[in-house]
Simulated assay, not measured.
Amino acid sequence: MFGARVSRRLQRLSLRLPCGLGIRLAAAARAAVAFAGRQCGQPICQAAYQNDLGQVWRWVKEDGNYINVQDGFNGDTPLICACRRGHMRIVSFLLRRNADVNLKNQKQRTCLHYAVKKRFTFFDYLLIILLMPVLLIGYFLMVSKTKQNEALVRMLLNAGVEVNAIDCYGCTALHYACEMKNQTLIPLLLEAHANPMIKNKHGETSLDIAQRLKFPQIELMLRKAS
């Protein structure tokens, strides 16, 4: 289902791309979808990653324990898989059924780490570039994606995710937000009592990262919080 949707989207886009770029892009997308499927050994995790709410609902209905099942490949839960891709409906469904927001995968990351680390996908960038000249549709798409990611982080914080959880590198969600210069998410994390003085395994705090990357506005926010 997911692969078919990607193929249809790429087929439409290829009509606007020169030199057969759309054909090559479609082939790359099919390979990426196949690779993603191999990385999710648990069917419910694969369904969550691919935004298949019907399949996620079916697995949870069959056995409530699937809600927090961890994939054998990397330890991802369905919630982490959904947060990796920013699938809001899947995340909302899982949270309503009390999915554990603080379970960690093999990299010791929670769903919050991935929600904060989430970037625009290649297809997002492609759509933004193609639609930017058309009544600023690309700009509004970019704003919409940013707001969606903000809403995702709010949902996780409201569900009680540990804002200062550290991963295998000693990084919190705030470390990653600073690395990505994400001025919309940093205030949310600070409001939830994110600690800007936690050091990662390189000895860097979130404030150190802001200073190193020369982000004065973010540095000011972090100084006020600390």
Results as ranks from 00 to 15, higher is better:
72 G>V: 13
172 T>N: 04
185 L>H: 03
191 E>W: 09
167 D>G: 06
165 A>C: 13
14 S>V: 02
128 I>E: 03
83 C>L: 12
118 K>T: 02
153 V>I: 14
97 R>I: 12
53 L>S: 06
166 I>R: 11
65 N>E: 15
112 L>P: 01
125 Y>L: 14
77 T>K: 05
181 K>S: 13
64 G>K: 13
85 R>Q: 15
209 I>F: 02
136 L>H: 10
144 S>R: 13
20 G>W: 08
185 L>Y: 04
70 Q>S: 14
21 L>V: 11
44 I>G: 01
79 L>V: 12
201 K>S: 07
51 N>G: 04
122 F>E: 13
107 K>L: 13
155 M>H: 07
45 C>L: 06
50 Q>D: 12
197 M>Y: 00
217 Q>Y: 03
163 V>K: 03
214 K>Y: 06
20 G>K: 04
30 R>D: 14
16 R>L: 13
23 I>S: 07
6 V>S: 04
169 Y>M: 09
192 A>F: 10
152 L>E: 09
152 L>D: 02
151 A>D: 11
15 L>D: 06
103 L>Y: 06
102 N>I: 13
7 S>Q: 11
51 N>Q: 12
66 Y>I: 01
113 H>C: 05
156 L>M: 08
208 D>L: 01
107 K>P: 00
60 V>A: 10
39 Q>A: 07
51 N>D: 15
222 L>P: 08
196 P>V: 04
130 L>E: 10
213 L>V: 13
181 K>P: 00
112 L>M: 08
21 L>I: 10
48 A>S: 14
201 K>P: 00
199 K>M: 07
112 L>C: 07
82 A>Y: 06
55 Q>I: 04
19 C>L: 11
151 A>I: 00
87 H>Y: 14
40 C>M: 10
85 R>N: 14
87 H>W: 15
164 N>Q: 09
102 N>A: 08
79 L>A: 06
19 C>H: 12
49 Y>A: 05
